[in-house]
Amino acid sequence: MKKLFTLALMLVFGWNVYAQQDVATLIKKDLRSEKEQLIREYMDLTPSQEAVFWPLYNDYQAELEGIMDERIGLLQKYADNYDSMSNDMARDITTRSLDLDTQLSKVRKKYYKRFNKVLPSTSASRFYQLDKMIRVLVETGAYSEIPLME
């Protein structure tokens, strides 16, 4: 079962927490690049809008990365302890996951306001939609591979 979790983490998040750091960094960089390409394609920003959007986007991604790294660590903890999950550990994992959801929501709200100040509201909202769609697709892929707690 542990191997299945690790494989799911590798496939969905693009890196294995057991992999060498430089390999993991390269894969994460590639995934970030693919996300940026999708955003470039669908945002349809003018050059002046791009000049203000991308630095703000980079700040947003940097803040999200810490949350996502914690989430991956939490999934790894779940995988490592799946066969011997105690009630206390299940409660801890779920509570920490809910806390990460709250942190993610706060960051998204904060940056939506910032994007809305420098872009037309339709563009800020389009980015919000794209970002959410990409996140939901990644999460759906991840959670479809992870069995429920027993």
Rank of each mutant, 00 (worst) to 15 (best):
S105W: 02
R96A: 02
D92R: 09
R96W: 00
L104K: 14
R114K: 15
S105I: 09
Q103I: 00
K113L: 11
Y111L: 07
T95Q: 07
F115D: 06
M89G: 03
K117N: 14
Y111Q: 09
S121A: 14
K109V: 02
L119R: 05
L119D: 04
K117E: 15
Y112K: 10
L100I: 12
K110A: 13
Y111I: 04
K117C: 04
T102W: 03
A90K: 12
V118A: 04
K109M: 07
D99G: 05
V118S: 04
A90H: 02
L98D: 01
Y112L: 08
F115A: 03
Q103K: 15
L104Q: 13
R91M: 10
S121G: 09
R108L: 06
Q103E: 08
L104T: 10
T95R: 10
R114P: 01
Y112P: 00
S97Q: 11
L100C: 04
D92E: 12
V118C: 04
K113R: 13
K106H: 05
K110R: 14
T102A: 11
Y112M: 06
V107L: 10
D101H: 14
L100N: 09
L98W: 10
I93H: 03
D101P: 02
I93S: 02
T95W: 04
Q103M: 14
R108Y: 00
R108S: 03
T94I: 12
K109D: 13
R91A: 12
L100T: 03
Y111S: 13
K106M: 03
Q103N: 07
K109G: 06
L100W: 05
K117V: 09
L104G: 05
K106Q: 15
K109S: 10
Y111G: 08
A90N: 02
D101V: 15
D92A: 14
K109W: 05
K106W: 00
L104D: 03
R114T: 07
L98C: 01
D99F: 03
Y111M: 09
D101C: 08
R96P: 00
F115E: 05
D101K: 15
T95K: 11
S105E: 11
N116G: 03
V107H: 08
R108C: 00
Q103F: 07
V118L: 03
R91F: 12
K110W: 03
S105K: 15
L119Y: 08
R91W: 04
K113D: 14
L119A: 09
D99M: 11
T102S: 14
Y112S: 04
V118Q: 04
N116H: 11
F115Q: 05
S121E: 11
F115H: 05
V118G: 06
P120M: 03
I93R: 08
A90L: 08
R91P: 00
Y112A: 05
I93L: 15
S97L: 06
K106P: 00
R91D: 12
M89Q: 06
K113E: 12
K113S: 11
R108W: 01
L100M: 11
